[in-house]
Design a protein around this nucleic acid. Structure first.
Lengths: 129, 129
DNA sequence: CTAGGAGCTGGACCCGACTCCAGCTCAAGC
DNA sequence: GCTTGAGCTGGAGTCGGGTCCAGCTCCTAG
């Protein structure tokens, strides 16, 4: 419970994030890790807790449909640090908008499907014929 | 205005559905058209209004994330006609469930992003520093 | 008759996002 | 000292969902 090791292996990060080890390396190549991962003895990646936090944000962005290049842009702004907050905010707001649109879209799909379901239920309720 | 031609060309179907001509042929190869498209003179596809209706349903299913093989299964049941309504209903209910899950997921993403946005707004509101 | 425009086919290609693999290096435990 | 397990690299492969293309056939209008 009281463990907050300041250094994690890629395997531990995989467990904490639910991403595969391969995906972690892939994301790194894609440049969506805030700080270019440190290396420990033997060239092994050393992650910190805040890398996990960052990855969790990336996971949220990805799963809401943000493509990797967009996440990379956001990451680059974050890497540049102070002064880019306005831009980062703008990117987040765009994504927020896209999420709203997706939700609205899904509700429209749901309407159609609910209607279809109702028709089938009605049809099946009718005993014979 | 008063046109409801009982036969449509692939180009007209493309316009009515918003799908490309290529995609229509692709969907046909994938077997997600209810009735194996009729052919007119010169081997040209002849569509009817109900094909457009069916395609519109397919579009809804696709855009709510149903993969093509699943749509194919649904289509096959529909083709078999009476007796498969229960199965079709089950497939629709599954998809309904997946849509609910997606919406819930997007709301969770939204929570995270809204929170991030609030932090940035707060940060940017602060005049100097 | 001839140039366009819409269709047709089979097959190649593309893109995004992973996923897998061979071949190598370490470090630890038996 | 040797096996095992976790990591490393570069590069290839996969999968889903389209998209594009060459080369051909019609039909219609000028």
């Amino acid at each position: 419970m009281s463990d907050s090791p300041q250094s994690l292996t890629i395997g531990q990060v995989a467990v904490r994030t639910g991403l595969s080890v391969d995906t972690l390396r892939f994301y790194e190549r894609e440049g969506i890790l805030a700080n270019p991962v440190r290396r420990g003895p033997g060239g092994r990646r050393v992650y910190a807790e805040h890398d996990v936090d960052w990855l969790n944000l990336c996971i949220v962005l990805r799963s809401s449909g943000m493509p990797i290049p967009a996440i990379r842009r956001y990451t680059e702004l974050a890497r540049q640090g102070a002064g880019t907050e306005g831009d980062r905010l703008a990117l987040l707001r765009e994504q927020q908008g896209r999420i709203f649109a997706q939700i609205a879209d899904l509700h429209r799909c749901l309407d159609v499907i609910n209607h279809k379901i109702a028709v089938y239920e009605d049809h099946l309720d009718r005993p014979a014929e």
